[in-house]
Simulated scan of single mutants.
Amino acid sequence: MVLECKHVWDHISDYLDHSLDPEMLALVEKHLEHCELCSAILDSTRNILILTADDRVFELPVAYSERLHARLDDELGLASDHDG
């Protein structure tokens, strides 16, 4: 049996939790050896788990939130202009 990417993605969480049965584990690992996309998704998922488990708090620069919302408003405004 050969796994497609979408099947590997369904098992990423169990792979990281070390809860795959040995047969599925072997199939996922074989796929990951040759698929850069799935390997990147695995690394990204692992990084997200590490970051969300980190209880440190980071202070944002002054007025960052306002600049972010202004930029989002500008971008969304431009996107709607192209739709009509």
Rank of each mutant, 00 (worst) to 15 (best):
D10Q: 15
L51V: 12
V28K: 03
L51F: 06
H31E: 11
G84V: 07
E36L: 08
E36R: 07
S13F: 06
T45D: 02
V62C: 07
H34R: 08
D81N: 05
L27Q: 15
L68V: 11
P61Y: 01
L37A: 10
R56F: 04
K6C: 09
L32M: 05
E29L: 02
S19L: 06
E59F: 10
S44Q: 12
H34A: 08
V62P: 11
K6Q: 13
I50P: 01
C5E: 09
V8E: 02
S80K: 07
H34T: 10
E23W: 10
S80C: 02
E29F: 01
D73H: 09
H11A: 14
A79N: 09
F58N: 04
V2T: 14
Y15G: 03
L37D: 06
H18Y: 04
S19Y: 01
D74P: 01
S39P: 00
E75F: 12
R46S: 06
H11M: 15
D43S: 10
S13N: 07
Y64G: 07
N47I: 13
A70R: 14
L37Y: 07
T45K: 04
L42G: 01
Y15P: 07
A79G: 00
T52W: 03
S80H: 05
M24L: 15
L68D: 00
L72D: 04
E4W: 09
C35L: 02
C35I: 05
H18W: 01
Y64D: 13
D54K: 03
D73M: 06
E59V: 13
S39T: 00
H34W: 00
C38H: 09
G84W: 00
D55M: 06
L76C: 09
D74E: 15
W9Y: 14
A53D: 15
D10P: 04
L78F: 09
A79R: 14
E33S: 06
H34Q: 09
E4V: 12
S19H: 05
L78K: 15
L25Q: 10
S65E: 12
V28N: 05
H7V: 03
P22W: 08
A63M: 04
L51Q: 13
I50N: 09
A63R: 12
L27M: 15
D81K: 11
P22D: 14
W9C: 02
D43I: 05
H82I: 10
E36Y: 00
Y15E: 03
H7R: 07
S44V: 06
D74S: 12
N47M: 14
L27H: 14
E59C: 05
E36W: 00
L78V: 11
D14P: 02
E36N: 05
W9V: 13
P61T: 01
L49Y: 11
S80V: 13
H69L: 15
L32S: 03
M24K: 12
H31D: 10
R56E: 10
D74K: 13
D43W: 00
D54W: 02
L60K: 05
W9I: 15
D83H: 08
V28S: 02
S13E: 12
T52H: 06
I50G: 03
A53T: 14
L27V: 06
C35H: 02
